[in-house]
Design a protein around this nucleic acid. Structure first.
Length: 229
DNA sequence: CCTAATCTCATCAAACACAGTTTGATGAGCTCATTAGG
């Protein structure tokens, strides 16, 4: 679309909608409806005039359909140039044996229909993009839910572990069947091997480090989330 | 400025092919369309 064309599009009649306040007594009819009714009246009058006039107007009123050749030629011209300069229009009309008016009308209609097709395509693209975003949003929400569940599980295991440490006290079960405390987040595993999981022998320093790892694992949730955005 | 030519937009109706779509044609434009030339 050329800049002038785009600019002209900014000036359809709806830019300045009817601003006259409706008469209180009159039924409330929108400006758009009034316009439409006016058009229909005019058309009816025109039709009646045509029908009531001399009978000789029949053939002239008949719609002349363009031949395939003519349509093809016009189509080719349209691909080259969306608008015709007057000399080109006259030339084209002469070549095709048509009125210049017919050529002009054909181009006007072609432009209008081309534009509405473009709008429709644009609409379909936007709708597809919108649908894709909705689907992705669903996936992200599901993923977020999973991550939250995993975090809750990890928290629970952490609490169990701490409780176990507290109850174990001084007595040292020599062979602990203590379950491994792990957190799988973002494909990384945080935790300790089964053999290392005996908290009885874990120094306070090691324990603190372990807890910090777990906390970091929680912090990684953000990173795991990011990969979907 | 004035005017003629031209544009977009909405709409109609014939044509085509069998109910709905395509397409040629028309009229309005409302703080009365815009643009270009005289």
């Amino acid at each position: 679309m050329s800049p002038e064309e785009g600019e002209r599009l900014l000036f359809p009649s709806f830019v300045f909608p009817d601003s006259f306040p409706a008469d209180d007594a009159a039924p409330v009819v929108s400006g758009e409806e009034q316009k439409k009714a006016g058009r229909q009246r005019r058309r009816r009058r025109a039709r009646q005039a045509a029908a009531g006039g001399e009978g000789g107007g029949d053939d002239a009123a008949k719609k002349r359909r363009l031949s395939d050749e003519q349509a093809k030629f016009l189509e080719m011209s349209f691909r080259k140039e969306r608008k015709l300069e007057t000399p080109r229009k006259v030339q084209l009309a002469a070549e095709l044996g048509l009125d210049t008016k017919q050529v002009a009308v054909w181009f006007q209609n072609r432009r209008a229909r081309y534009k509405s097709k473009l709008i429709e395509e644009e609409f379909n693209k936007l709708r597809a993009a919108h649908d894709a975003v909705v689907v992705r949003n669903c996936h992200l929400e599901a993923e977020l839910l999973r991550l939250k569940e995993r975090l809750a599980e990890t928290e629970e295991e952490k609490n169990k572990a701490m409780a176990a440490v507290a109850t174990a006290g001084g007595s040292s079960p020599s062979s602990s069947s203590f379950s491994t405390v792990t957190a799988m987040v973002g494909g990384q595993q945080f935790g300790m091997e089964e053999a290392e999981a005996d908290f009885t022998y874990m120094s306070e320093y090691a324990y603190t480090n372990y807890m910090m790892d777990l906390a970091a694992a929680g912090g990684y949730l953000g990173g795991a989330y990011d990969q979907f955005s």
